[in-house]
Write a protein that binds this DNA or RNA. Structure first.
Lengths: 186, 186
DNA sequence: CAATGACTGTACTGATCGGTAAAGTAAAGT
DNA sequence: ACTTTACTTTACCGATCAGTACAGTCATTG
């Protein structure tokens, strides 16, 4: 028997593994064990090895956010896009049950390998949210500060809810952050 | 020539290494390489190996916060203790140049090994801050929400400032969080 | 049906992993 | 001076690491 994969099918599996184990913790044998995909196949799709795999995962995460969050924030109705951001973020991170791969990579030496991609992810998130807040009527400076605070707040909520093993911490934090943007808008 | 160490001298060195490389990334050979301490010595002080080393590091971090932050928050003048927390936290994390080891461990599977210690660290931080806020005049519920938000905000600021490689993000975030506690107190 | 090219499975490499064993060294206790 | 204790150094172990090589297997194409 022989199961045939496509690169696009593999990346989400890799994403889940890197998320749970981190870059160093995700060894090739654990990857093959949990995906059922042999080393031969992995190196066929990712000749650059583990680093290329992690790079592909970051790129896919980035693409998802770009499509589902950043672009709406930049171009759609500001209020709707911001509201959609909160629900999309809550769903994406499974109410705190899933962590942010990019944020996790930023914390250890893995950052050195992917600093451009990691930086870009957050820069664009903050920039897109800032843009929406400006369109919603905030002054430039306040919009930037609030955007930065919101993105940091999400990352912190992920750390805290995982540390306390309590999803409620995450959803509660998102609600507080969302209300702050609404409240300040009036 | 023979250099003799004490356990208490080694733990801070280990702390810096685990912080930078993460639990999985901190291999024994990299530890001996960076500290100059041989495996024999390490296993003499930490018979439980890497896991005991990381446990000792967490315990020391925890003890520092307990002494420098949590205890003042619980027993000293509320306003002063909160103000001291912000400056101590800013110094401890070197204005964002240093990450929170406990927070980093919470994000990957390392959490499984140390879940009790990790959970306790944050529970006590939030509890102590909550206590100070109550003494400062906040109603119980609001105090808890603000404490949780502050601790999460610090963790998020560390992630973000490291991702953007920009210490200003961290200090700015701390100022915003500090002002929120002050503002709500009036 | 033959040949091609995309993909998989297996077997392997040298390096490094966490951990162990024991000889060696220095200082303190007697 | 001799022993004990504390610590370091060196050498080693089996397991696992990332990565490579290549024969085998299939669907597609001519």
């Amino acid at each position: 028997m022989k199961t045939v994969y496509e690169r696009a099918d593999i990346v989400p599996l890799l994403a889940e593994i890197f998320r749970e184990l981190g870059y160093e913790g995700a060894s090739l044998s654990r990857i093959t064990e949990r995906t059922g995909i042999g080393k031969g196949s992995l190196y066929h799709f990712f000749p650059g090895g583990k680093e290329e795999m992690a790079g592909a995962v970051i790129a896919e995460v980035d693409a998802w956010f770009e499509h589902a969050v950043y672009r709406p924030l930049r171009h759609d109705d500001a209020g709707e896009a911001i509201a959609a951001m909160w629900t999309n973020v809550n769903d994406y991170f499974r109410s705190g049950g899933r962590i942010c791969l990019v944020g996790a990579f930023a914390l250890d030496e893995t950052r050195e390998r992917f600093s451009a991609a990691i930086g870009g992810y957050f820069i664009r998130w903050i920039g897109a949210l800032r843009s929406a807040l400006v369109r919603a009527g905030y002054p430039e400076e306040e919009a930037l500060a609030l955007a930065e605070e919101s993105v940091a707040g999400i990352q912190g909520a992920l750390v805290l809810s995982r540390a306390l093993n309590d999803k409620a911490v995450f959803t509660r934090a998102l609600e507080t952050l969302a209300k702050r943007l609404d409240a300040a808008a009036r």
